[in-house]
Simulated scan of single mutants.
Amino acid sequence: MSEKSTILCVEDEDMLLQDLKEELEDEGYEVWTAKNGQAALEILQEEKPDLIISDMMMPKLDGPGLLRHVREKRPGLNDVPFIFLTAKATRDDLIEGKRLGVDDYLTKPVDYDLLLATVEASLGQVLRVKKQNQDKLRRIYNAIQKQRSASEELRVSFVVQNPASVRPILAALNELGCTVSVISEDQLVKKSFSVEGSDILFIVYSKIVHYYLKYVTEGIGKDWKGISVLLAPSNLSQEQRECIKDAGISNTVEYPYPPIEIFKLLMQKMKT
């Protein structure tokens, strides 16, 4: 790997947390530490690790609570492997963890050779999946480019307040050579933006976006000749869907916004 992989270790025993940090750093990993699940969430507000290792039993917020929050409320962390450390997990604990989306378990006392092998395997699997997806995206993108002038780049704009929520898509577009720009919701409210120089506009659904689409739709889905795509949750109400349709946005990709599905949609639109 060209850069160090980052690992978040969450453990309330100071000595074990320090041992984990030292062992992983000796192998070349960058390690962030937290003493409970709540402290880990504070780190995850600002950072995205490549892997999370967490104790199961901790004060304030335990391991299962942390995992539940990550898997249900942090879509930007969907591709981050999660490993539990446990001293006495019951069969029911193991089943609950699997249902929540844990990727692996390690028992205490920690066998550090097994720990390092598990970390390497988990990170390797993520890289393989990313490479497979990138290969698929590249084939689709090349097919899209055949519909356009070879000298032109695909110009893509995103309306999103928090770019981290769509980081995988932004990274894929940038790597494929697209010209990508971000329009904040503040610019949307003030109407201080233009999509005239864009071929494709992605809009991440929110209350502010809903208001804009319902009451101020000039420039999106009306006179503009590009392609508009709404990235939306799967639980939109009928009223919300009607608002989107009335605003002239007919393309919707639901959470978790698979990049491959997005590029397939773009390819279909380019062909037409």
Results as ranks from 00 to 15, higher is better:
residue 253 V to Q: 05
residue 233 P to L: 09
residue 178 C to D: 02
residue 126 V to F: 10
residue 41 L to G: 00
residue 140 I to H: 07
residue 209 V to G: 00
residue 79 D to T: 09
residue 209 V to E: 00
residue 125 Q to V: 12
residue 8 L to N: 02
residue 142 N to K: 15
residue 91 R to S: 14
residue 142 N to W: 12
residue 171 A to S: 15
residue 260 I to K: 13
residue 138 R to I: 09
residue 243 C to K: 14
residue 239 E to D: 08
residue 133 N to W: 11
residue 131 K to T: 13
residue 236 L to R: 08
residue 171 A to L: 14
residue 148 R to S: 08
residue 238 Q to N: 09
residue 178 C to W: 06
residue 49 P to D: 10
residue 94 L to F: 15
residue 146 K to C: 06
residue 164 A to G: 07
residue 199 D to H: 09
residue 235 N to H: 11
residue 210 H to T: 09
residue 230 L to Q: 03
residue 123 L to R: 08
residue 40 A to D: 01
residue 151 S to M: 08
residue 175 E to D: 10
residue 40 A to K: 05
residue 153 E to G: 07
residue 110 V to H: 05
residue 253 V to T: 07
residue 62 D to H: 14
residue 77 L to P: 00
residue 26 D to I: 13
residue 75 P to C: 03
residue 175 E to W: 13
residue 137 L to C: 09
residue 104 D to I: 14
residue 45 Q to G: 02
residue 86 T to D: 04
residue 118 T to P: 00
residue 272 T to I: 11
residue 139 R to A: 10
residue 45 Q to I: 08
residue 57 M to D: 12
residue 195 V to D: 01
residue 25 E to W: 09
residue 143 A to R: 15
residue 100 L to K: 13
residue 238 Q to G: 06
residue 100 L to T: 12
residue 136 K to P: 02
residue 263 F to A: 05
residue 103 D to M: 12
